[in-house]
Nucleic acid binder design. Structure first.
Lengths: 243, 243
DNA sequence: CGCCAGGTTGATTTCGCTCAAGCAATGTGG
DNA sequence: CCACATTGCTTGAGCGAAATCAACCTGGCG
C-alpha cells in the first residue's frame, strides 16, 4: 500500500494520489506540468504551522495527505478552529487572490504532506485555463455553504447537538468501522479546539462529553473515542436544515 | 436626483446606477449587452420572495436598489437570517453554478429593484470573459470571510456584544448622521430576525435591548433606533479579530 | 523528582431559555 | 363603526444550562 504513494511523492502532480480529486484535474497535461514545476512538497508534523494569520505569502497550499486545521485568533487570546482540510483540499488561496494577508492560520493536526505552490504559477494557469477559475469558484462556494451550515446550526441547535454533529463529521473523516458495527476514532484535536468549534468553554465540553458517556452515546478516553452505535448517533445528530 | 436613476432603470445594464460596482463591470460592451438582453428588472415590496429555499431556478439576481435578506429554514420551523444584500450584490448564483437547488431563500426587506438574469447568459459571459469568473470568485471568497467572521464572533463574543456588532453594521448601511453627532436607523428587520442573526430567542433580544437602553447605548422605538454616541458604540463593539 | 500542559471535576453565579401573560398595532367581519 | 382575532413585541417568574473560578488529576518531560 505504501510503495505507490511514495512513488507518487516523487513524481509530482501527474501521479499524485489525489490527482483525480484535486483542483488541478481540470488542467491540461501541459499546464499541470507548469504547476508541477512551481511546486515543492513539504512534510508537516502535528502542530507545525503551514501559514500564519496576518502573513502575506504568495503561495497556495494543496493538501496531499493528512489533516490541516484552519484557525482564527484575536488579540485577547481567543482561538477558534474554523474547519479541517483533507487530501485534495486547497488552503490559503483566498489571500493570494484577494492580494491581502491570511485571515486565518493553518496548521497540521496530523502528520501531513502539503504541496506549496507558487501563486504566480497558479495565476498563470488560471489565465491559460479558465476552467481552473471555475473550479476554485466551486470550491469557494462549497466553503460558503459549509460556513452557512455552521452558522445555522450554532443558531438553532443545542451545544450537545452541535457536538453530536461534529462527532458525526469526524467519524466520517477519521472513523474506522469495527466488526461489531461500532466505530472508533482517533481525534485529531484537543478538547480546547473541539470546544471552540462548537462555541463553548472547554469545561463545558468536558461535561457534555460526560453526559454523552452516561447516555451510552460514545466512550471517550483521551483522544480515542468509540461509538457503539453510529446509527443512533447519526439519528440524534441529524437536523440538516431540510425543506 | 431621481430623474437620472429613472432613466437608468429604463436603459438597463449600460447605464445602471451600480454598473461600476457590479460584477458586470469586467465585461466588454458587447458581453454586457448580451447580459442586458437576458435580463428583466423586477420590483419587490418588503416581504416579497425573490427565490425560495429548495427551488431550482436558472437565474442570477443582481440587486439594483433596496435590501435583500438571505434566510435559511429547517423543518422544525426554525428561521435564521444569514445576511443582507445591497445594491450591486449578486444573489442566488450558487445554485446556478453548482446546478442544485437554492439552499437559502431570498426576500426583500425594503422596497427593492432586482434584475433577474437568465443563468445561461451568465454562463456564456463567463466562457467568453474569464474575468467574470474571477469576479464571482472574489465575491464568493468575500462571503466566506464574512461567514467566518460571523462564526468566530458567535464563538467568542457575548450576545450583547454580538448585537452591538450587528447594530454597528446596520448603522453603516442604514444609518443617517444627525447634526449633533447622533445617529438614527430605520431597521429593515423584525426583532425575531435580529434575534436569529445573533443566535438568541427573541425574548432574550428584547432584554438585551432593554439593557442597552438603560446603559444609554441606544434608544429603540419599534424599528426606529437612535444612537446618541456612535463612537461609543463602535468602541464597545470592536473586536475585529485582529492578529 | 518536581514541573507543566491538558484535562476533569466541583461550587457558585450569571445568563438565557421556556412558558405564560399582557399590550399595542393592524386587520376583519358583522 | 365596533367587537374580535391576529401578529409582533415586551415583561415576568422559574428553571436549567453554561460561564467562571478554583482545585485537582494525569501523563509527559526536563
Amino acid at each position: 500500500m505504501a510503495p505507490p504513494s511514495d512513488k507518487a511523492n516523487q513524481d509530482g502532480c501527474h501521479t499524485c494520489t489525489c490527482r483525480d480529486q484535486s483542483s488541478w484535474q481540470v488542467l491540461s497535461e501541459d499546464d499541470l506540468e507548469r504547476v508541477n514545476r512551481a511546486r515543492r512538497t513539504r512534510r508537516y508534523e502535528p502542530g507545525d504551522t503551514v501559514f500564519a494569520q496576518g502573513e502575506a505569502d504568495r503561495c497556495v497550499y494543496c493538501v496531499k495527505s493528512g489533516t490541516i486545521a484552519e484557525r482564527r485568533l484575536d488579540s485577547d487570546g481567543n482561538s477558534v478552529l474554523l474547519g479541517l482540510n483533507y487530501a485534495s483540499d486547497l488552503v490559503g488561496y483566498r489571500s493570494f487572490l484577494s492580494g491581502g494577508t491570511h485571515r486565518t492560520s493553518a496548521e497540521a493536526v496530523s502528520p501531513a504532506t502539503v504541496c506549496v505552490i507558487d501563486a504566480a504559477a497558479v495565476g498563470e494557469a488560471m489565465e491559460r485555463n479558465p476552467e481552473l477559475t471555475r473550479e476554485l469558484l466551486r470550491r469557494s462556494m462549497a466553503e460558503v455553504e459549509q460556513a452557512q451550515d455552521t452558522i445555522f446550526r450554532s443558531a438553532t441547535l443545542s451545544n450537545r447537538d452541535r457536538l453530536l454533529q461534529l462527532l458525526q463529521e469526524l467519524l466520517r473523516r477519521h472513523g474506522t468501522m469495527a466488526a461489531d458495527g461500532s466505530c472508533r476514532i482517533e481525534l485529531p484535536l484537543s478538547r480546547r479546539d473541539l470546544a471552540s468549534m462548537i462555541g463553548v468553554r472547554h469545561e463545558t465540553l468536558s461535561r457534555i462529553i460526560g453526559r454523552l458517556e452516561t447516555e451510552g452515546m460514545a466512550q471517550f478516553s483521551g483522544r480515542h473515542v468509540t461509538v457503539p452505535n453510529p446509527r443512533a448517533l447519526a439519528a440524534a445528530a441529524s437536523q440538516p436544515s431540510a425543506d
